[in-house]
Write a protein that binds this DNA or RNA. Structure first.
Lengths: 147, 147
DNA sequence: CCTTTACTGATAATCATTCCTACCTAGTGA
DNA sequence: TCACTAGGTAGGAATGATTATCAGTAAAGG
């Protein structure tokens, strides 16, 4: 009973979908599991490639539709990216930030409660005229490698 | 002699391109001017629509290539966006942030040197393992309207 | 078990972006 | 000023990503 196993066991996936008001179809279970399993921020294409290992009959269109429904239900979010043509998805909906490496085109998750707090306090103090902030996401562009 | 006029006068545009090492063609001058003139963060399509007003013969492909060359030369940057299919461009290369309104789907520029400083100092102190940050861009999601 | 209705698979259609090729022109130096 | 040439342009075809359509299928609830 590892924590890592529990996130992707069938029961947990089912209840996630149920909570979101989505039918727990075989396809969605496999797609959601792939999204949680795959490292980084996969494209629909990458999810599909992974998914056809389990269930070869799942079509790319179904992957797109499933991902859309996950996003609409708040299970998943789309990751903003300026570089690269295709959209990327992120199963992790907790607040976190992204490091984008211009050398490798990699997007690395960056989680830092202190940073969150810093930003939240900044905006609480600042009182933007006519804008009510709800969530923050910092995009850091840079390169991997020693300082 | 407004400051706003000087940014889009032919001479200024020419020297911008020259500094970037790009030839100052008629097409690029018009495209760069449109990019500076258009509000928000236009797509290539939107720039093209604006540009054909002046010079109807400029093709969409030329707009794409000009924008690519501007980005490569650092005159322009691509704006990260999770929503919407097409890429957006921003003529303003100074560091700034974006407020995204979930009601109106609007992207509002937000410039704040104090915030920049806060983030820069945070990362200077933090010393990310194996990542060298170069620039920061904060994406704030929220809604317009009174607090 | 039956019904309802949302979901799926296959394919076509659409939209954004890039590629290709022949022509053109800005910048350079004689 | 003139001609040279590397780089830029127009236009259309090609590619890639995403969405729409629709007949068939299978979850969820009674």
């Amino acid at each position: 009973m590892h924590a890592s196993a529990s996130a992707v066991n069938p029961g947990a996936l089912r209840s996630r979908l149920a909570q979101a008001g989505l039918r727990a179809t075989r396809q969605r279970l496999v797609i959601l599991e792939s999204l949680l399993t795959l490292p980084g921020h996969p494209t629909a294409e990458q999810v599909h490639r992974h998914v056809v290992g389990h269930s070869p009959s799942i079509s790319l269109g179904t992957v797109y539709k499933a991902l859309d429904s996950f996003v609409a239900a708040g299970l998943t979010r789309r990751v903003a990216s300026a570089e690269g043509a295709s959209r990327r998805y992120d199963a992790d909906c907790t607040e976190h930030h992204h490091l984008f490496c211009t050398d490798t085109q990699e997007i690395i998750d960056y989680c830092d409660p202190q940073l969150d707090e810093l930003i939240r306090q900044f905006f609480a103090a600042r009182e933007l005229e006519g804008f009510q902030p709800r969530s923050f996401s910092l995009h850091v562009v840079g390169t991997r490698g020693m300082k």
